[in-house]
Amino acid sequence: MTVIDQWTPKAQALAADLRTKGAIRSALVEEAIIAVPRHAFITGHYAHGRHTPVDPDQPTDELLTLAYSDRGIMTHTPADSAGGFSSTSQPSIVAKMLEAARLRPGMRVLEIGAGTGWNASLIAHMTKADVHTIEASAQVASEAREAVERAGMTERVTVHTGDGYLGHPDGGPYDLIIATCGTAGVAPAWLDQLTPTATILAPIAHGGLHPLTRVTTHTNGHPTGRLVTTADFMAASGPLYTGATPAPATRGQHLPAPDPKAARPNSVPKGLDNASYVDLWMHLAAHDPRTTCAGTEHTTEYTGCSVVADDTAVFVQPTGLHLTAGPKAQTLADETERVITTWEHSGRPALTTWSCSLTPTTGTQFSLLAPTNWQSNCADT
């Protein structure tokens, strides 16, 4: 049995799984997921704090099972020589982004965050055009180049080592700039590297997550964004994240566990599934900039949507509101409950109803165009 006979059925099964989940909707994305060998981009991975090297030229059954499952794969951590986190993203998220990108043959694309090089290769397979991708880590960029060559995509994919904040003007103008790392906003330089009808797709920080946001400049030359789908990518290094004022809240916060006696079980609408929970989360984030993703000390039970003011937090769970101890928590919970009520009375509007303006940040060395003035196309929100 040849190597291609080993991995192709697994790639086909992955594509079928992504179809069932609704992540793949088009034949173009499905064909790319099947055709571009994901295992060729993995030379090692982390699990339970342990690194396992693998040989993509002689893939084992274990590697193929890992590569063609719907899960993200951590390939580097700050503890190794790459100097930071890097991964190959979860295929269902990759497929959703590729569908949202509305790729077509001939499109010129710039990717921010090469990672393993798999996503850029998928894009190149779909567009049959040149794709430039930028990676901050010299080691990760070198590995991506090797992987692109291993997959036979060097004629279309060029991996650059550099700061994605600057883009890559020599390869433009682009029909699409797509970021595969969480950002705090859009780099001003990107706008200068677009065609007049181009789009930016970026996971931009909002409410402690990185929902995928479609940015266009077609209306009066002012960039506007619209939420496309939920996502939560690793944060970019450098000014793509630190250019915000203040820096976006992240999962780094760990607060005291809530007081069970102060719980408000009837303050959150019943029947929330994963999708509607994120819809509520984005509604809260649009109304209250204190909305984030926080955790608690000594337990993961309350990790998720939360409204945090200093050392006081209200954790918003499908089971209700869970408050940390202290008199300020009651006031914070009252304010949060009022916003939740408007979401319920408005018919539980979806994440995709929200749009924003992107305006320059100030007071930092590297400016970003960050989301402001959130608006929903649903009334009463």
Rank of each mutant, 00 (worst) to 15 (best):
P239L: 00
S92F: 01
S142D: 12
G84V: 08
E62R: 12
G113E: 07
A23G: 07
I33G: 05
R102E: 14
G113Y: 03
A144Q: 09
V140M: 04
R19N: 08
A124W: 12
S87P: 09
L280G: 15
A286R: 00
A13D: 05
V148G: 00
L368T: 05
L201R: 15
T250E: 05
G167Y: 07
G363T: 01
D57N: 12
T324Q: 06
A100R: 09
L332N: 01
P269V: 14
E99N: 02
R25T: 08
P258L: 02
N274S: 14
R38N: 04
T88N: 02
Y165D: 07
K21W: 01
I24K: 02
A95D: 01
T341D: 10
W7R: 01
E62M: 05
A136M: 15
L166Y: 09
A262V: 06
H168D: 10
A11S: 03
C356I: 13
L321Y: 04
D380I: 02
T127Y: 15
L323I: 09
S69C: 07
L280C: 08
S69A: 05
R348L: 02
L351R: 03
A13M: 03
A16F: 00
H222Q: 10
V339G: 02
A147P: 11
T331H: 13
G304L: 10
T291E: 07
V186A: 10
D192P: 09
R251N: 07
N220P: 11
V148M: 01
Y241W: 11
T8K: 07
I200P: 15
M74A: 11
H345N: 14
G44D: 01
N220A: 13
P59W: 02
T362N: 11
Q317A: 13
W343L: 08
G320Y: 14
G83C: 12
Y277H: 12
M107N: 06
W7D: 06
W354L: 15
C378F: 15
A187H: 08
R214Y: 14
T197Y: 10
T213V: 07
I93C: 00
